[in-house]
Design a protein around this nucleic acid. Structure first.
Length: 210
DNA sequence: CAGCGGATGTGCT
DNA sequence: GCACATCCGCTGG
């Protein structure tokens, strides 16, 4: 049994939190009481008001409202008429950033955001849950990567704008990672300057806006 | 690997 | 009223 992650962990820049979520455990208590623990091996960061691919880019709506709230809550949305996807809200209230959880490597059929929600039986009813407590039936526990596990970065999958940013993070070679052509052009996180630059640029934009 | 369709919520971009 | 969606499984080359 792992240790619950505190809100201060999520209340940091989304590009800092995203790679640190790899190796952590997405935990779900099913309606029948069974508890599933999925090891996170693939995520994407969505940067809010400065990111055209983010649901929150154009401001709050009924669907995305939880993204504008405090860090550490779930944001589950429905898309393509049949799939649900789960995000973790990051950064302080009013800064609508989030991390899409895309892959788990210890549960069969959990490579892909739609499949995660199917396996863990999550719908919009699980949106807005406080992930820093077990009370809502959905929470996240600390975890680590093995010595040999390398973090890779690539553009995000399935978006049509802001495609040049390397804001997808995944564990190289893990069976829980989505099969996608972008995998073969991915580069190791440690060799990637884009992340540092992007974080600095986002901070600059936020300072100007305030 | 590219193309396509499914089935419906969402916000008018 | 309507275009499109943070997807996925299937088809054909």
């Amino acid at each position: 049994m792992g240790k619950l992650i505190k809100r201060t962990f999520f209340d940091r820049p989304v590009l800092t939190v995203a790679p640190e979520l790899l190796g952590c455990w997405l935990c779900r208590r099913l309606p029948d009481g069974q508890i599933l623990r999925g090891r996170i091996v693939e995520v994407e960061a969505y940067l809010g008001r400065i990111d055209a691919a983010s649901h929150s880019f154009r401001g709050p709506t009924n669907r995305n409202r939880v993204m504008f709230g405090p860090a550490g809550y779930s944001y589950v949305y429905f898309t393509y008429g049949m799939h649900h996807c789960v995000n973790v809200v990051t950064e302080p209230e009013g800064t609508p950033t989030a991390i899409l959880i895309r892959g788990l490597d210890n549960i069969d059929n959990a490579n892909g955001p739609g499949r995660i929600c199917k396996v863990m039986e999550m719908t919009r009813e699980q949106s807005g849950i406080d992930l820093t407590t077990k009370d809502g039936g959905l929470w996240i526990e600390h975890g680590t990567l093995m010595e040999h596990e390398i973090i890779m970065v690539s553009p995000r999958i399935g978006i049509s704008v802001a495609v040049d940013h390397l804001w997808r993070f995944f564990v190289k070679g893990s069976p829980g990672v989505t099969k996608n052509p972008l995998n073969k052009s991915a580069v190791p996180l440690m060799a990637n300057e884009d992340i540092r630059k992007a974080t600095a640029a986002a901070d600059q934009i936020r300072k100007k806006q305030h």
